[in-house]
Amino acid sequence: MQLDTALQLLRQSGHGLPEGTPGSDAWLQSLIDSLVDMSSRDALTGLANRRSFELALAREIDRVARAGEPALLLALDIDHFKRVNDTYGHASGDVVLKAVASALLDCVRPMDLVARVGGEEFAIVMPNCPATFGETVAERVRRRIEAMPVSIGLSQQIQVSVSIGGAFAPQWVRSSPALWIERADIQLYRAKAEGRNRVCLEPSAVSVVSAEEKALLFGISQFQDIE
C-alpha cells in the first residue's frame, strides 16, 4: 500500500532501489534493510539518529555491566550555532552541521558511534575507553572542530567550536541510558557555563565529599564542635 512512498523515500535519501525481482522475498528483504538503515540515520548528516543512538547506548550499558569495560559518552553542542543560522542563513547552518558531522566521524575509532541527537547536538559513544584516556580523546575531538574552517558560499569560510561534556558508564553496574545521558549533559552545561569551546568530564572521584558538603552536613547540627 505504502510501497510507492517507501520506494520514493529510499530514492530521495540516496539509498537506491532494492535489488532483485520486485515483489520477491529477496527484494522485500533488501527493501526492509534499506528502510531500517534509513530510519536509523539522521537525514541531513547521515549520522546515527537519536533513535539508534539510544539503542546503542542501551547495548553499551549492557556490555559495561557484563564485561566491565569502561565506556565513555560524550555530549557535544556547537557553540553559538544560532548565530551562524542568523548571520549566514539556514543553508549555511546545514553546511556547518554536515562539516562537523564528517569531522567527528573522522576523528574517532570505527567502533565508536557518532550520532546527531538534536538540532546542533551530537553524541559519541566510545566503548572500551579507559578512564585515563577520556580527557585526551575528548580534547582531540574539540581541537579537530576548532581547527576546521567551514566553507560556506564561494569564498567565505567560518570557524565553529564545540562544547563537550562527558561521563563514563559505571562499570559492572546496571544503569540506564537516560541517566548516562543526563550525566554527560550536566557536564556539557558546565562546559557551556565555563565559557564554551572546552571539555568537561564528570570527575571520577564522586566519592570525595567536599568542604562545602561537609559544612552543610554538619554546619547547623549538633556536630558543630566536632568538625
Binding site: 559505571p170 541517566l179 550525566r183 565529599v209 552536613l217 568538625e227
Partner: peptide, 20 residues
Amino acid sequence: EPTSMTDAYATIKVLAATQS
C-alpha cells in the same frame, strides 16, 4: 557520628551517580 554520616553521604552520592 560525623565520620559515619560523611561516609553514608559519600555512598549515597556514588549510588546516585552510578545507578539510577
